[in-house]
């Protein structure tokens, strides 16, 4: 009898620990479906994912002006935009609280977009979208399929400091997997960069 009680209690404790652990990391996981949003682009127009009727998916890139890692990836992001943007629009979203990082404010975003060539660079002023996704660093990428199902989360590639040293581009390999009806491998990496600055 004692044994049964012990086992039952162990299972309950394990479940509680498990639930607590999964709840503490809010946000989307691979396999979840993202919610559409409406945010202001650098040209002043409001953008939603539903605007892209022919998209086969999306590359959602939480990024900013101020983080050195985000800067290292600017040209690579624009490269992805011209290579995949037609079928997989590259949607850059700036999630930082601009009172902490003034160099990330809307005017600076406009300047940077013009300078590097971002087509979409949306301001998440209320930080609602970043919380929904659960992004924590810049750059932090989510690859979605046409049904907004999350297929990959993490870094853009495996070599932030040096593009020539890239062995795996995680984003393009995820897109190839989606195109071939396969699961991206890996579907998750750690996004290396700066912590997103949330309102205090």
């Amino acid at each position: 009898m004692k044994k049964i009680i012990f086992i039952t209690l162990s299972v309950i404790v394990a479940l509680v620990v498990f639930v607590a652990a999964t709840q503490s990391t809010a946000g989307l996981k691979v396999g979840d479906t993202a919610k559409d949003f409406k945010l202001k682009n650098i040209d002043g127009k409001m953008i939603s994912l539903s605007d892209f009727k022919d998209a086969k998916g999306f590359i959602i890139n939480f990024t900013c002006n101020s983080c050195p890692f985000a800067v290292l990836y600017q040209d690579r992001v624009v490269e992805m935009q011209s290579k995949y943007g037609k079928s997989y629009p590259v949607i850059n979203i700036m999630p930082n609280d601009v009172s902490i990082k003034p160099e990330d404010d809307f005017q600076h975003m406009q300047e940077r977009a013009k300078e590097v060539g971002y087509q979409y660079y949306l301001l998440d002023a209320k930080q609602e979208v970043v919380r929904q996704f659960g992004a924590e660093r810049t750059p932090h990428v989510y690859v979605l399929d046409r049904n907004l199902k999350v297929r990959y989360i993490g870094a853009i590639d495996d070599s932030p400091q040096n593009e020539e040293d890239v062995k795996i581009n995680y984003v393009t390999s995820a897109i190839k997997a989606i195109e071939n009806g396969k699961e991206p491998e890996p579907s998750f990496t750690k996004a290396i960069g700066c912590s997103i600055k949330f309102k205090k």
Partner: peptide
């Protein structure tokens, strides 16, 4: 530079 190989 291969952060995903070592930070863990």
């Amino acid at each position: 530079n291969k952060y995903n190989n070592w930070i863990n």
